[in-house]
Amino acid sequence: MSFQPIKFYQTGTFTVGNRLLAPEERSVQASDKRYNSINSGHRACQGCGEALGARYAIDAAMEATQGQLICANATGCLEVFSTPYPETSWQIPWVHSLFGNTAAVATGIAAALKVKQKKGERNPAIRVVAQGGDGGTTDIGFGCLSGMFERNDDVLYICYDNGGYMNTGVQRSSATPPAARTATTMAVGSEPGNAFGQGKFVPAIAMAHEIPYVATATVADLRDLEAKVSRAMELRGARYIHILVPCPLGWGTASSETIKIARLAKETGLFPVFSAEYGEQKSALAIRQKLPVEDYLRPQKRYAHLFGKQPDVQVIAKLQALADRNIRKYNLLEGL
């Protein structure tokens, strides 16, 4: 396990905090002194999973480095909603360069720090994170990401995966799941929505680079997410965390259901939550109550075409097969 869940309290470690827990057992987000690395006033949509995921992850990294963090950010929703002139939501040193070069920018920062720290010109505790959406990570930024991985540069790269190009109006990315409707995979024709047999799961590709740390997480399991960031910051070299962040706008879900949808993604097995070190799987966050994929799909308008007058049982079965494969492959029922 990536963290020791606490049992037999009202809520164990499922809630953000718990007044019954010892202070050292509490989450970063439970603290009234948390960093709020991304501040109020940002322009993310109501219920934005990415805004939430970014604060969870960056605050955890800030906690791990005691505030000695520099962040590089890819173009995308997160960048646009957080830094429209004349206001920024970031309370940490932050740079946005381009859509597809964030991993490389972070490499440059890490290289600069290494030299400066060796010369004694900068605090030796300063570390680097890079972050971007799935488009900026799995598509346009993938070359730079892979380069950063293979060189094992001392960067934690965090991908906030909402399964598409949401900033430009919900187009397909290589992280868009099969059958999902996007503006470029419309729910029309004989095979509505995104095609099966396409796309890529970057955490697995990251593992193939045999970098020190690869993990997935969702905004629904805060403690797991924080533990993963914390573990990542214990290690040096290239690290990758892929966080599922539901997008109410792009997925067609109620703004209040962001966390619930992420939870369903994990509980159905469609999104495997695990970690790996040096290319080998180390942990799996066990499914608590296995649910059929339908429970995850049905509340999302991007899958509405699967639930017309007659549910499209064939497509649903194919998606269920994908979930079942994840469950087998990553040991999601037993957990690790």
Partner: peptide, 11 residues
């Protein structure tokens, strides 16, 4: 339980 405090995307 700090849930509301934690889950608010807008702090």
């Amino acid at each position: 339980c700090d849930n509301c405090y934690g889950v608010c995307p807008d702090n």
